[in-house]
Simulated assay, not measured.
Amino acid sequence: MLTKLSHRQLRFVGALRAGLSGKAAAVTAGYSPRTAAQAASRLAKSEHIRAVLAAPESHDEFVACADSDEARAARIRMCWLDSLCERAKSGDVRAMLSYFAEWRRSKRRRRRTTRP
């Protein structure tokens, strides 16, 4: 279902889920402030948008709502770690080892950036 939505439409859905009004969500998604109210009304009537809003939030929407490439990369990494964690909980030993190794790497990165 998500393949039928454009990047701006995904951002619109993410902004609505974040609690913004229709017009504010349209502006956040990149629609013109002058026509944001009309765009929000049109988007809210779309069958595809309604279906996505009715379904639980997916990783694609979560990633599409990022404001910059850096934030998008961080969100992709977070989704990857989530999936590793879920696989580790179900008993996958390789996923558990990968999750711990990545956690150690990120801890080292944080330590390097906080020291003067």
Rank of each mutant, 00 (worst) to 15 (best):
Met1Ala: 13
Leu2Lys: 10
Lys4Ser: 14
Lys4Glu: 15
Lys4Met: 12
Ser6Glu: 10
Gln9Ile: 05
Leu10Thr: 04
Arg11Ser: 06
Val13Tyr: 03
Ala18Arg: 15
Ala18Val: 09
Gly19Tyr: 11
Leu20Ala: 10
Ser21Leu: 07
Ser21Phe: 09
Gly22Tyr: 07
Gly22Ile: 09
Gly22Ala: 11
Lys23Trp: 07
Ala24Cys: 10
Ala25Pro: 03
Ala26Gln: 04
Val27Pro: 00
Val27Gly: 01
Gly30Arg: 07
Gly30Trp: 04
Tyr31Gly: 01
Tyr31Ser: 07
Ser32Ala: 14
Ser32Gln: 15
Thr35Gly: 06
Ala36Pro: 04
Ala36Tyr: 06
Ala37Gln: 12
Ala39Leu: 02
Ser41Thr: 10
Arg42Leu: 12
Arg42Asn: 14
Leu43Arg: 01
Lys45Phe: 03
Lys45Thr: 09
Lys45Val: 01
Lys45His: 10
Glu47Leu: 09
Glu47Arg: 11
His48Lys: 12
Ile49Cys: 08
Ile49Asp: 03
Arg50Gly: 08
Arg50Phe: 02
Leu53Ala: 08
Leu53Pro: 09
Ala55Trp: 04
Ala55Lys: 14
Pro56Glu: 15
Pro56Gly: 15
Ser58Met: 08
Glu61Asn: 04
Phe62Met: 02
Val63Glu: 09
Ala64Trp: 03
Cys65Asn: 00
Ala66Lys: 08
Asp67Cys: 04
Ser68Ala: 03
Arg72His: 03
Ala73Asn: 12
Ala74Ile: 06
Ala74Leu: 10
Arg75Met: 04
Ile76Asp: 01
Arg77Ser: 05
Arg77Gln: 12
Met78Asn: 07
Met78Arg: 14
Met78Gly: 03
Trp80Met: 05
Leu81His: 09
Asp82Arg: 15
Ser83Arg: 15
Leu84His: 02
Glu86Tyr: 12
Arg87Val: 00
Ala88Trp: 00
Ser90Glu: 15
Ser90Lys: 14
Gly91Thr: 10
Gly91Glu: 14
Val93His: 11
Arg94Asp: 13
Arg94Gln: 14
Ala95Glu: 08
Ala95Asp: 06
Leu97Ala: 10
Ser98Lys: 04
Phe100Trp: 09
Ala101Thr: 00
Ala101Pro: 02
Ala101Lys: 00
Ala101Leu: 00
Glu102Leu: 07
Glu102Thr: 03
Glu102Ser: 06
Trp103His: 12
Arg104Lys: 11
Arg105Ser: 08
Arg108Tyr: 05
Arg111Val: 05
Arg112Thr: 04
Thr114Lys: 06
Thr114Val: 08
Arg115Ile: 13
Pro116Met: 06
